[in-house]
Design a protein around this nucleic acid. Structure first.
Lengths: 186, 186
DNA sequence: TCAAAAACAGACAGACTTGTCTATTTTTAA
DNA sequence: TTAAAAATAGACAAGTCTGTCTGTTTTTGA
């Protein structure tokens, strides 16, 4: 297998396992077994499990935006697209292998003083907030401050719906967030 | 030490460690060392680590309501008391040892098929929703369905603010949830 | 006072963890 | 074609984990 392909296989396999089973309950031995590679190969691509964790978080964020953006482009700019955010969430929930937000899950699993992983997670979420700001800006004319405030409100709704649908194993929190979003923007 | 006192010491120590460090990163050996008891003593009170986890979740929920209820009784019934919910959250965030929501943290740490722990968590959160319904009902006259819908909306806001303030290590999501609550009830 | 209950220290089993290392084979690319 | 790079299997170190067990000492309560 080509060098870069092996790396990709490791990230894909580790991501699936980390997301499904959790970071601490997934061992290196399980990753190499499922990926079908040798342990020395894994450690020639990543110097530690923590490095794989960071690659996992970045990979999930990348996939997330690669799916979200085309999904929302099917909606007309403005209010409908903002509501589309919660349709995306509902589809995400309904899809196979849903296990909540990988960022919140991982934050819960690492020591509080692990700044390296925390920063990757916070960066990913900041990117999402920024993207929501862009969606809000596409709606009717607003000043910069109003845009920022509304984006943060929608973000908190989005995350609340996501984590609570996971906890209750029921889509009602996402639906609640959706209807609250509607109330906010109309 | 008296029998029931030992049990309480175990729960208190385990709760502190589970909440601070996470469930999987806290070992039985650490619990007995910090609690100052023998391992055989711990296992005479709890048959497994999972049983301690359940006692931990119930203990935290109990403490939570024991603090929340008197806190809110200082507010006038109705809208102000509903907003007080988010003041409580802000105080919880600002307090020492804040580490997010123990329910979401624990859900992230256990295997997906662990129904026993999941049910304890879902039960605790359902109790919170029910309590919010009571707070909502204290406000102006509403039919039962409207009460339920509004309570769920406030709950999603509450949880979103809580988990995101934890993630970003900043109180802005709680403040955002607070202002959204205000908008909702006035 | 005295028997029962509880707590004690700590060894131990058995399985797991991450990460290193050796020695061999395969693949790649010029 | 051939030398360098990469992947291989798997042993190993050194530590972790949960849970059991033995044998002793302390506490409790009637």
């Amino acid at each position: 297998m080509k060098h870069s392909l092996v790396r990709h296989t490791i990230i894909e396999t580790a991501s699936r396992l980390f997301y499904e089973k959790g970071y601490n309950l997934t061992g290196i031995n399980e990753i190499i077994k499922e990926a079908g590679i040798a342990k020395a190969t894994l450690y020639s691509h990543f110097k530690s499990k923590e490095d794989i964790c960071i690659a996992y978080l970045q990979y999930k964020d990348q996939l997330f935006f690669e799916e979200l953006k085309p999904f929302l482009e099917a909606y007309p700019k403005g209010k409908e697209r903002l509501l589309g955010l919660f349709d995306f969430l509902a589809a995400f929930y309904a899809g196979a292998n849903f296990n909540g937000c990988w960022c919140l899950n991982t934050i819960s699993e690492i020591p509080q003083d692990n700044k390296r992983i925390r920063e990757v997670i916070q960066h990913g979420k900041s990117t999402l907030i920024q993207y929501i700001e862009e969606l809000v800006a596409e709606d009717t004319q607003k000043d910069q401050e109003t845009i920022k405030v509304l984006a943060r409100q929608l973000y908190v709704l989005y995350e609340g719906g996501l984590s609570e649908s996971h906890l209750h194993q029921d889509p009602w929190p996402i639906q609640t967030a959706h209807s609250l979003c509607k109330k906010l923007i109309t």
